[in-house]
Structure formats: structure tokens, C-alpha cells
Design a protein around this nucleic acid. Structure first.
Lengths: 382, 382
DNA sequence: TAGGTAGGTGAATCTGCTA
DNA sequence: TTAGCAGATTCACCTACCT
């Protein structure tokens, strides 16, 4: 415990007191160096989304740096578990703290890991004040078998998706995700193949360039779900640059941080050869919430529905008349109000979307009054 | 932090100094009371496997309504409320410490939770010296949807399976698991339905007896995987006694601890009416394999078909473009939607199988997009 | 009896803009 | 800060009841 506190104090001092921040963000750039040190060069609240795939193999002692930049001794048998866990926790807290600082208040962070580290990361995220939105299971379609037959085949990894606070208004492209999943809500478990074949980057010897290269399909879904085109995406553990490649393809701006020279080189070449998607392919299913608001009264004013018209619900349980001011009044005189309020009242429901609840009759068929709104939106080109 | 230490000290002192342990284990018994206090009555190293379903600390907000206006029956019980994360952590550490004491050195522990609590539980398990063997994802075949469209559907829960130490010789029935999974290694993701229908216990009013009853199939697999007949299974959060019922069915011995009077009563009645499996039936029941459902959007994510590609029907009457979210948009701009929906729209049909309706062109020949799906299924072997 | 329709429900951190 | 209100939002599986 003493170790944790010492490390944290050091990190905090260094972050707040010393250096000037960059005033122009280094877009489409790999900042080479320690991720904590490099994040300190970025201004507060400047990033829309962070995707992080932190190291968790404690055997890679070189991957662990204290916030002050000093390297942690290699993990060896002299270390007891408590010591290595707390070192990892200190490392996690330190980079999460910087990540939180550079993230916009309405931004989100994704962190991926396996059972070796994800519980520590998740607890640290909560401790640092992040608000968990989902934990996402990446279910590997083709995992490595457990050769010894001693455990269950380790066939998934876990991502944690957080906003900066409970009340934050984060980006979630609900309709896009639903469209991507054959018109069913996207679930918290995603079945995707591991990164292999032509997508897997090789070094000159033909060996895989990076031990944990993530599939582009994973980042594709992450980015489509939680960012807009033009948003700024930061990956503090850039590796071979999957985040940058997908960001470029989907027309998001990106910043990568990577320490190892060889990964930086591989990532640069890879991203340079990635082409952005065509403009037309980027026109997605619109979020309904983003459409301009239309008042029912406007449609009455425009003569798209006449005052005096009778409307009813899908089962013809209630009938009402359209008034000149765009309100409805029940034919039995037992209630009146806006299309929404009256719909809620008659059903005894807390709320109601009047656009879909009320129908008018045309050629013997009931048509949602929402059809009028859609016709209006189409006509005005919005 | 002070809270944690006080609780731990208390627990430790009471456990080691004060009371005499039971010399004969209370098999097939529900010990009524607080789980930490009751575990203190059990001797050291006496339990083969612990299954624990602790409170999740959900922290729900106000009421939630379905789109049809009905209200969701939330988990609002007092036993799920904690003042803060640190209070929850102290509680977790305290019961885990007792659990560790009563567990045999070669025994294992399972803990189930959701993103609200599982990261804290996992970190605490590691802190207490447990060695994680697997994290298991229970993919719910029929989860509750996300009614407001604000996040991904929360469609899974996580179980953590641990031995007491890295070198422990725990039980894992590899071949049984493989047999249960059509002669393929059992993976770390399990698809099982939630507990509903006849299995779901009701109180006298016909309401669910317990808000979070787990399916027997889940415990069935847990117990088959990690215990032998005659082994001693402890469930410190017994609830309606799913663990006891399955233990009896599989001829394991069990001990339950439960605080609430009403749950104890329900569990007793339930287990009394559960019959042990016949010897011959201990050979396993096959489970139906879930049909792999492939969304067209997945193929776009995987790069099997590029956004911007043009598709058409077999007679080339309609042409559409593939968008980045896996939807199609007609080239004349007169319609858009999923492969199925757009196919239905252009034909004026009530429905349409888009997989067979839409084609892409390769070397001058039209190929059903279903060919891409078949290629994906063949590749991933699902 | 088979088949179809209607209604209920599940561990949920479940809205957002404007005045 | 809060009140008011427009309006967006569900999937799989169960039982009960009807024809």
C-alpha cells in the first residue's frame, strides 16, 4: 500500500506543475514515448474518445513505468504477488488519471483486457470517478484452444466502456448499432474473429509484428458506436496502430502514443496505406433524436391535416378530434391536450409518443400521424 | 480505508479466537443468518467448492418504463444497497476472507456478478490471494432489452473461477465439459437462457419469489465442471437454493447460508421436492446449439464487403449501395434500410429475405450476398 | 388437439431540451 | 437548479385464452 501512495503522489506533482501543454493537437500523429509522459503534453478536455489496450503481461517488466518515468524492476520470483499487483495498480491509476484529464467531459473511454488485468482496471476506473456504461465481451470466433485441458478455453476478452461521470451526455449511436445488427439492438457480447491472415502484420522475418494486435472489426464497431466523423480519438497504447487505421477509414481524427520504435514504424506504414471510406458510404441511418423537431400544430397550420379530423389509436379504443391549435380533444369530452399528453392520459401511462399513438383514417386504413411528419420532413429536405 | 481495516480485524479476531467450530458439518442444511457470521461456525479447510452470488450493488435511479408504458420490476431490495464503493469493498473482503478460510487448499470458488460489482470482486479475489483460473461469461439467450436505447443491451453476467493458490491441484472435469459441448473444448462463454417459466419460483401472490434467481443449468455446468459426486458445496448467498437443488440432483453435498426468512422457507420446500438424478441419467443431456445468427453488418465490419459496394436484385431492377453501418440505400435516394427491410420495401412485399434478394457483381456475374455469409460461417466454424 | 393471438416479464446503474 | 414537456424506446420466451 505504501508503494501505491508514493507513486501516486509523485505522478500528480509532475502532471500539474511542470510543462506547458500543446496548444494545437497533433492529429494523425504517433507521439513516441511513455504514454503518461506524452499525455501530459495534451491539454485538458480535448479528446472525444480514448481506446486503450494496456499491457498486462507482468513478465514484460519493461512495459511498466512509474509515473515519474523511472522503470519498475523486472518481475522476478523475489516479488510477492502483493507487490506486483500494487505496482500494476499504481501504473493503471497513473495513466487513467491523465486519460481522464485530457478527455472531454462528454467523452468516453474504452479499455480492453483479460482476466489477468481487467478486474484491476475496472475497479480503478470506478475509483477514478469514471461511470461504467457497459462491459462488452469480445467473443472470439476462433480462439486458441487450451492445449493442456486444464481449464475452459479462454475464448473472450472484456472491454469496459465508461463516461466521465454519471450525468455526462456521451455519444452512443443507437440506430447505427441496431442497423449493424440486422435491426436488433446491439448486445454486450460481440462475436468477432481474432486478428489473423492478411490483416495480421508481420515483421521482416515473417513473425507477427505485435503479440496482441486487435482486429480492425473490433475498433470499427467501437468507433461507429461512440464517436462521430471528425471526432478526436486517442490511443495511448498504440501498438501497430489499429485504432489509427480504423479512425482514418471512418474519418475520425486520431492521436497515438507508442514507446517502441518498431511498432511506431509498422503503424505509420500501415496507416499511410489505409484509405478513407467514400463519402457516400458514410451516410448512415440517422438517429431519430437528431432530426429537427416538428410541432403537430405546424402540420395543422400547413393544412396537412384539417381541424375537425377524427383520430384514434391503433385499436380504436379512443377517438379524438383535431383542434385548430394542434391539440386533440376526446369525442366524449372527457379529456383534451397535446397529442402526447392526451395519449398518455387515456392509457394511464406516464408518457406517450403521440406521433405513433394516434392514427387518421384513409381509404379504410389507419395511418399513424407520424406519416404526416415524415412527409413534411421529406418535403423540406431535412 | 479505515472501514476496511476495522471490519477485517474484527472478522479475523472473531474467527480465530472466540467460538468453537462445528465438528460435524451441517450437510443439506440452510444456516440462517449473516453469511460472514455463519461461515465462522465452519471449520478451516472443510469445503470443496464455493458458489457465491453476492449482492450486485446496482445503484438504480428512478422508475423505468417499457415502451408500452408498463413498469419494470426493479431490484430495489435493501440487501442490495450499500453506502459507497468502499463499504461494498469492505463487505466483499470480509466474506471472501472467511470463504478462503473454510475452503480446502485444493478447493475452488465461483463468484458471479455484473459490471456493477464484478471488477471490485475480481480485484478483491486477487488481493486475498486467490488464483483466477477463468472468467466465464454467461451470455443470456433472452436478456431484458435496453428500453431507452441508451446503451448496449446488457446481455451477460460474469463468473470468476479461482483456486486458492497458483499451485493448487483443483478439480476440473475436462472430458465431461468436452462431452457436454459436442466434443469440443468447453469455452469461457456459455449461452444459457435466464431463469423463467416453470423453473422460476413464485410466492403465494404469484410474484417471483426472488428477484435474481439463477437458472439451474448454470449451476449444473459449474458443478459438473469443478466438483465430484460427494463433494461439499457451500453457497453463502443461498437465496432460493438453486445451488442446493442442483447439488442434490448431482449428488453433491451442500451447505447454504441465507439471512432472509422467506428465502429460507422457499429454498427448503424447493430442495425437498428435488430428486437426485438416477445413476444412468448422470450421463449428460445434450443441449441444443444456438443457431449462429450472422448480421450483414458484421460482414461489412469484417471487410468481406466494402462500404460503397453496389448491390442489385437478380433481375437488376433495383440498385443500392452498401453503407458503413451495414444498411443499404437505393442509388436513386428513394429508400434505405436493412437488407431485409429495403428488399421488402422496393417489392412492396410484407417481408423479404435480403440474403437471397440482393446480389453483388463479381467478374460480370451476380452473386447472392448469402454467399458471403456462408463463407464466414465456414471460416469461423460456427 | 393444434394453432394463433394477446399479454406479461426479466440483476437496468435507461431522455433531453428549454425556459 | 428545477420544472415542464416533447417524444424516443423492446427481445425472447413464457402462459393464458381463444378458435
Amino acid at each position: 500500500m505504501a508503494v501505491v501512495q508514493r507513486v501516486q503522489r509523485k505522478g500528480t506533482v509532475a502532471a500539474t506543475a511542470k510543462r506547458p501543454k500543446l496548444t494545437v493537437l497533433p492529429f494523425e500523429t504517433i507521439m513516441q514515448g511513455d504514454c503518461i509522459e506524452q499525455m501530459k503534453n495534451l491539454p485538458d478536455r480535448s479528446i472525444d474518445m480514448i481506446f486503450a489496450d494496456p499491457p498486462y503481461n507482468l513478465q514484460l517488466g519493461g512495459d511498466l513505468h512509474r509515473p515519474d518515468g523511472s522503470q519498475v524492476d523486472a518481475v522476478d520470483d523475489d516479488w510477492d504477488k502483493f507487490d506486483s499487483l500494487s505496482t500494476y495498480d499504481a501504473f493503471t491509476k497513473a495513466w487513467l488519471r491523465e486519460a481522464r484529464r485530457v478527455l472531454k467531459d462528454d467523452g468516453t473511454i474504452w479499455v480492453i483486457g483479460s482476466y489477468h488485468n481487467i478486474f484491476r482496471v475496472g475497479a480503478a476506473l470506478q475509483d477514478e470517478g469514471f461511470w461504467i456504461l457497459n462491459d462488452i465481451v469480445w467473443r472470439k470466433a476462433n480462439p486458441m484452444p487450451n492445449f493442456k485441458g486444464t481449464r475452459f478455453t479462454n475464448a473472450h476478452e472484456t472491454m469496459i466502456w465508461c463516461s466521465k461521470s454519471e450525468k455526462a451526455r456521451y455519444t452512443f449511436n443507437y440506430r447505427t448499432m441496431k442497423a449493424l445488427n440486422d435491426d436488433l439492438q446491439m448486445r454486450s457480447d460481440w462475436s468477432l474473429p481474432i486478428c489473423s491472415g492478411g490483416e495480421r502484420l508481420k515483421d521482416d522475418d515473417g513473425h507477427k509484428a505485435h503479440p496482441t494486435q486487435k482486429p480492425e472489426a473490433l475498433l470499427y464497431r467501437v468507433m461507429l458506436a461512440s464517436t462521430e466523423p471528425g471526432d478526436i480519438v486517442l490511443d495511448p497504447f498504440f501498438g501497430t496502430g489499429t485504432t489509427g487505421a480504423v479512425a482514418r477509414r471512418l474519418k475520425r481524427r486520431w492521436i497515438g502514443i507508442e514507446r517502441e520504435d518498431k511498432y511506431v514504424k509498422v503503424a505509420r506504414a500501415r496507416i499511410d496505406s489505409t484509405l478513407p471510406l467514400d463519402e457516400s458510404a458514410m451516410v448512415l441511418m440517422p438517429e431519430k433524436k437528431a432530426q429537427p423537431r416538428v410541432a403537430f400544430g405546424l402540420l395543422v397550420e400547413l393544412g396537412m391535416i384539417e381541424p375537425g379530423t377524427h383520430v384514434t389509436d391503433a385499436k380504436r379504443r379512443w377517438k379524438a378530434e383535431v383542434k385548430a391549435d394542434g391539440t386533440l380533444a376526446l369525442l366524449d369530452g372527457m379529456g383534451a391536450g397535446s397529442i402526447h399528453k392526451l395519449g398518455a392520459t387515456v392509457q394511464g401511462a406516464p408518457s406517450c409518443n403521440g406521433w405513433n399513438f394516434w392514427h387518421y383514417e384513409e381509404a379504410g386504413k389507419l395511418i399513424e400521424i407520424d406519416a404526416l411528419r415524415q412527409r413534411h420532413l421529406a418535403k423540406t429536405g431535412e
